[in-house]
Simulated scan of single mutants.
Amino acid sequence: MLKEWRHRRAVQRVKPGDGRALKRFRWWQMLTRALFHLRLTHDDGRQTLYAVDVRHQNQSEGYVKAHLYLDGRHHAESRVPAVFPVPGGTVEVRASGFGLKRCHYVTAEGAEFTLVPDPASAEGRRARLDRAHPVLSRGIGFLSRIVLVIGLVLLILQLAEQVTRAPEGLAQYVGTFTSPIDLPAWGNTVIGLVTAAASTERALRLRYHWLLDGGTG
């Protein structure tokens, strides 16, 4: 019920586009822009090309916007999470603090298909690495997950120590806890940077876990 209500709200947020042309992806936009494509074939054999363009750095209004282009022209826009109605289903877009965590075409029957990232984008380059070097790609993905697990464990240990530090608080019921790992300030900074990089790498593959990536963000 809640999911359906959120879906309807997202559809209602969609605004019509202004017809402007889709700008080509530039190499310097790899960390600030995501561009995905979807080609749909109609019953009469005619094809239409949709594109989802998200500018991560353009948050002057306090939220990220997703723009939908149809055959190279601006067709619609919405704040994320966005749900764009298209023939045969919807295009769903969701973002995290590190990029996109969802950019899928969902049919009316419930089947889901990931949109194809633009070859020039960071997501497209990551997908090309996965195709060309699958073993290396899996290794990088595994390393990202391990880094996030380690970062989460360290965060839990530090929080437990902070919560039980005050004797008049939780400590009087469960006792005090001292973390076995005491990192200096620079160590915490390094851990923060490494975990942010790991979550960014996962976002390039539209991977997201509320505890691992959400805890990092």
Results as ranks from 00 to 15, higher is better:
residue 1 M to N: 12
residue 3 K to A: 15
residue 3 K to W: 13
residue 4 E to M: 12
residue 5 W to M: 11
residue 10 A to S: 11
residue 11 V to Y: 12
residue 19 G to Q: 10
residue 30 M to G: 09
residue 39 R to A: 08
residue 40 L to E: 01
residue 43 D to N: 09
residue 46 R to H: 10
residue 48 T to P: 02
residue 49 L to M: 07
residue 56 H to Y: 15
residue 57 Q to Y: 09
residue 63 Y to Q: 07
residue 64 V to L: 06
residue 68 L to Q: 01
residue 69 Y to R: 04
residue 75 H to F: 06
residue 76 A to V: 01
residue 78 S to H: 01
residue 80 V to D: 00
residue 80 V to C: 01
residue 83 V to H: 01
residue 84 F to P: 00
residue 87 P to E: 02
residue 88 G to M: 03
residue 96 S to C: 12
residue 100 L to R: 01
residue 102 R to D: 07
residue 106 V to F: 02
residue 111 A to W: 15
residue 118 D to M: 02
residue 119 P to M: 02
residue 120 A to T: 05
residue 121 S to F: 03
residue 124 G to W: 00
residue 134 P to R: 03
residue 136 L to Q: 06
residue 138 R to W: 14
residue 144 S to E: 10
residue 145 R to C: 09
residue 153 V to W: 07
residue 156 I to R: 12
residue 158 Q to K: 14
residue 159 L to G: 08
residue 164 T to C: 10
residue 171 A to Y: 06
residue 173 Y to W: 14
residue 179 S to T: 05
residue 180 P to N: 05
residue 183 L to H: 10
residue 183 L to K: 07
residue 192 G to L: 07
residue 193 L to S: 12
residue 202 R to D: 03
residue 204 L to C: 11
residue 214 G to N: 03
residue 214 G to I: 07
residue 214 G to E: 03
residue 217 G to M: 12
residue 217 G to H: 13
